Simulated scan of single mutants.
Amino acid sequence: MKFVLLPITVTSMLLAGCAATVNTTTASAPPLKTSAASAKNIVLNLEGDPQHTAGEDWTKLKTAWQSGMKTAATEIGAGYAEQDDKPRATGRDGTVVAVHIKDYRYLGTGTRYGLGAFAGNAFVDANVSFIDARSGKLLGERAYNTSSSAWQGIFSAMTDKQVEALSREIVGELQKK
């Protein structure tokens, strides 16, 4: 009987350690001024401070955000697009999600699995402005962050998982009324 429970326990530990926890200012911030049209189309505008955008992992982080936001938008049946340069209105129903990366440490799957706890902590710290895509009017702002614990070793959330969790949280804000 002990040998039957061991694989179940190990599997549970593996799955539990992969989750990413998102911290946000949602509770203390005024509600977003959204409408039913806010969640029709989501436009990601990603930028960061120059020291971050010039980093060797910026492209990987950007790809993770594009994938995470596209998945989160698809899950709620919204259209998805990306926007470069300064955030701006598109003339269509939806929301421009302008993500400004304040700080991050990218850890990919290979690094995490190869080095475990020695890889250190992955984290993302971002400010997000929600902009009405039709008019360009600011709907509200939020701060989001997530981190992993190196002590979870190979089971802690890597950057991709953290960005997926952040994306779902951000898109979820557009569905609240």
Results as ranks from 00 to 15, higher is better:
residue 36 A to Y: 01
residue 117 A to R: 04
residue 40 K to M: 04
residue 160 D to W: 11
residue 137 K to D: 10
residue 46 L to H: 06
residue 136 G to P: 05
residue 45 N to S: 13
residue 43 V to H: 02
residue 73 A to N: 04
residue 51 Q to R: 11
residue 46 L to P: 08
residue 65 W to G: 06
residue 9 T to L: 11
residue 26 T to P: 00
residue 121 N to R: 13
residue 123 F to V: 12
residue 123 F to L: 10
residue 124 V to R: 03
residue 78 A to K: 10
residue 146 T to G: 11
residue 8 I to M: 12
residue 161 K to R: 15
residue 50 P to A: 15
residue 36 A to H: 03
residue 116 G to D: 08
residue 160 D to N: 15
residue 136 G to F: 13
residue 19 A to S: 14
residue 120 G to T: 03
residue 139 L to Y: 01
residue 157 A to W: 00
residue 18 C to T: 10
residue 69 M to I: 13
residue 60 K to I: 04
residue 33 K to S: 09
residue 85 D to Y: 04
residue 152 Q to S: 07
residue 45 N to H: 06
residue 117 A to I: 06
residue 7 P to I: 00
residue 104 Y to K: 02
residue 15 L to M: 15
residue 3 F to C: 05
residue 63 T to L: 12
residue 33 K to V: 05
residue 118 F to K: 06
residue 122 A to M: 08
residue 109 T to S: 13
residue 1 M to S: 10
residue 20 A to K: 02
residue 40 K to I: 03
residue 158 M to A: 08
residue 171 V to E: 04
residue 154 I to Y: 15
residue 109 T to Q: 14
residue 16 A to S: 14
residue 121 N to M: 11
residue 108 G to V: 03
residue 170 I to V: 15
residue 13 M to D: 03
residue 146 T to I: 04
residue 50 P to Y: 15
residue 13 M to I: 10
residue 149 S to C: 06
residue 105 R to I: 09
residue 166 L to F: 09
residue 134 R to H: 10
residue 23 N to P: 01
residue 45 N to W: 05
residue 78 A to M: 14
residue 88 R to F: 14
residue 102 K to R: 14
residue 150 A to L: 07
residue 45 N to M: 07
residue 93 D to M: 02
residue 118 F to Y: 02
residue 1 M to E: 05
residue 90 T to H: 07
residue 133 A to D: 04
residue 145 N to Y: 13
residue 2 K to V: 02
residue 173 E to M: 15
residue 110 G to Y: 15
residue 174 L to A: 03
residue 89 A to H: 10
residue 75 E to M: 08
residue 117 A to H: 07
residue 67 S to H: 11
residue 43 V to W: 03
residue 161 K to H: 12
residue 151 W to P: 00
residue 113 Y to C: 05
residue 23 N to Q: 09
residue 32 L to N: 06
residue 125 D to F: 10
residue 113 Y to G: 09
residue 105 R to C: 10
residue 131 I to G: 02
residue 28 S to F: 13
residue 4 V to W: 12
residue 158 M to W: 00
residue 53 T to P: 09
residue 130 F to S: 08
residue 107 L to K: 01
residue 76 I to S: 00
residue 168 R to H: 15
residue 86 K to H: 12
residue 157 A to E: 07
residue 129 S to C: 05
residue 162 Q to R: 01
residue 133 A to R: 01
residue 159 T to G: 06
residue 137 K to H: 07
residue 1 M to Q: 06
residue 49 D to T: 09
residue 109 T to C: 07
residue 151 W to E: 09
residue 4 V to I: 11
residue 148 S to K: 02
residue 137 K to G: 07
residue 86 K to F: 14
residue 81 A to H: 04
residue 79 G to Q: 09
residue 148 S to W: 04
residue 135 S to H: 06
residue 94 G to S: 03
residue 84 D to E: 11
residue 141 E to D: 06
residue 151 W to T: 09
residue 73 A to S: 13
residue 116 G to F: 08
residue 74 T to K: 14
residue 64 A to Q: 02
residue 159 T to F: 02
residue 150 A to K: 05
residue 125 D to W: 12
residue 120 G to R: 03
residue 150 A to D: 07
residue 48 G to P: 09
residue 34 T to S: 02
residue 108 G to E: 08
residue 56 E to K: 11
residue 127 N to C: 06
residue 127 N to Q: 13
residue 57 D to K: 15
residue 72 A to W: 00
residue 95 T to K: 00
residue 110 G to H: 15
residue 5 L to T: 02
residue 147 S to H: 15
residue 134 R to W: 00
residue 16 A to P: 01
